[in-house]
Design a protein around this nucleic acid. Structure first.
Lengths: 297, 297
DNA sequence: TCAATCTATAACTTACGTTTATAGATATTA
DNA sequence: TAATATCTATAAACGTAAGTTATAGATTGA
């Protein structure tokens, strides 16, 4: 098996037409080049060059037969270097983002649109899954960055970079409960109403459960739902009182379809974080995308 | 600039999915492979593999991006080795033959046809030129083998392999000179007839000149010609007496259009030789072709 | 918990590629 | 016809990069 470095020497000599010039180009001495060619010739069992007084020229039945293929091969390998280097120094390639549908919708959609305007060369791959699954995706190198509902279990292979958004869970109701507008309520008061809560095994639900239990007033849902959008609709239709991050319900609240109950104490805010696999490559594009979420001080 | 050998390691690891197996395949130790990959990764500035408990898998934003190109490049370089090796071990490629038109016609035509039947894969390049020029062609690597009218000046860069055919120059005439049939003649007798001789600066002419001068009876041509075919026609038409290798005029003699004069002493025979450039590659095809001219003992 | 399989790392060794120095060959210039 | 310049080839000495051995650490499955 031939040492591939010899092909680089071969190519350079062929292009320069001279051992001496090739040596300069390769930043090695002329005898080194001479020996390399000799070695390649013996290993291939063929003389590749005609030695003339003015230098080296490809022999018709040796070097000339292989020159173009060697050229293409070296071109490909150079391309490989360039490709990766470009990937690190300019915003190209693919950005694989993992997050829950909710986070995509409420936290990322705008950012992704903005980013795409600025760097149209970057392709997106959006992988929507619940936060624990997103962590798996990160570990399995199925996505480059994940956006997670915090807190998550600490994990060796995952680096949580930042908290990019605060979520404030609030209780909301529709016109059917207009009498509650402006009234100060406690968690105990809520137990008397039909509650619409996010389904179990979600960070949002865990937050409510933990909050209500720690106050000694566990809340039971009348209806469990797996989508914020659906919850908002049902609550607006008067099905009961919902618990939802204020940020997700902003529009309906502004439009008056929903109003926020004045529950005290308020639930502590949750946050959405940004996570990377510990050993992942951080491409230029990824870094640029992450910058969109830098805290503005 | 990345050491190209590292790509071979990269490729093998990618295919094997394991450092350990790649090490076996490459006949080097596992740590050597581990280090090579590490080195390639640092030189390319990117991690190429995901290390898992079951081995190495290409990372989506690293190795997977370059794998196919590396594969193609290595394929090309392997192809190069195969191509040259095939060229030495089977009859393929191109055979570039240099010779004078005459030699092509009278000595080589049949052989080339035979060879082509046996090795249809071999392409021919026929370069017809006078013998001294053919020597130049050999030196300049424009042909692989030359067929020359001997003798030639001895030359450092040329190896004359063999004498493949004897040429016996004889004097011939047509029916116009029928009275000379069967008569024994000397060179002096010939001086009285119009002679058709090959033009100067050819081996054939030099042979006649040398022969006649050494006998003290230099022969002057009435007509100088540059083609044996034309000479045969003119002689047959009665323009004079021609001097031509018997081998070239065989058909016309057999058909009775020409007859051979009984000149004594006869001219010494000349020969056609086979010549190679001293440093040339001898491909399998070339060797096979040369075998056609082996003396049959 | 033990055995089997991975990869990673450190320290040592060796062999390959490089350099230096020089010779030889050919063409160009005076 | 020297003398100079410019090629490549070769030998010997050298130094480093690549490979080896040995071992650790991590994960999986019996």
């Amino acid at each position: 098996m031939v040492n591939l470095e010899l092909y680089r020497v071969f190519y350079t000599v062929a292009k320069c037409g001279s051992l001496t010039k090739a040596a300069e180009e390769l930043y090695i001495s002329q005898p080194a080049v001479s020996q390399a060619i000799k070695q390649l010739e013996t290993q291939l069992g063929t003389s590749l060059f005609n030695r003339t007084h003015k230098g080296m020229e490809l022999s018709a039945q040796g070097g000339a037969l292989i020159f173009e293929e060697v050229e293409r091969a070296l071109g490909l390998l150079n391309g490989v270097e360039d490709k990766l280097s470009e990937l690190r120094h300019s915003a190209t390639g693919t950005l694989r983002i993992g997050a829950s549908e909710t986070i995509f919708q409420y936290c990322l959609a705008d950012k992704i649109v903005d980013f795409h305007k600025q760097y149209p060369q970057v392709r997106f791959e959006l992988i929507s899954d619940v936060s624990p699954k997103t962590i798996e995706q990160l570990k399995m190198d199925r996505c480059d960055i994940g956006f997670l509902n915090l807190p998550i279990e600490s994990d060796e292979d995952i680096v949580v970079t930042d908290s990019i958004m605060l979520l404030n869970d609030v209780f909301v109701a529709g016109e059917a409960y207009a009498d509650l507008k402006g009234k100060e309520l406690s968690v105990w008061d809520l137990q008397r109403y039909p509650l619409l809560l996010m389904e179990e095994h979600t960070v949002a639900r865990a937050a409510i459960d933990h909050f209500s239990k720690s106050l000694g007033a566990p809340l039971q849902p009348a209806i469990e739902i797996d989508s914020w959008g659906f919850m908002k609709k049902l609550v607006a239709d008067g099905m009961g009182i919902g618990c939802i991050p204020r940020e997700y319900a902003r529009r309906r609240i502004e439009e008056g379809q929903l109003f926020e109950l004045d529950v005290r104490p308020a639930m502590p805010s949750r946050s959405v974080g940004m996570a990377l696999a510990r050993n992942a490559n951080v491409s230029f594009a990824l870094r640029a995308f992450m910058n969109l979420f830098k805290r503005k001080n």
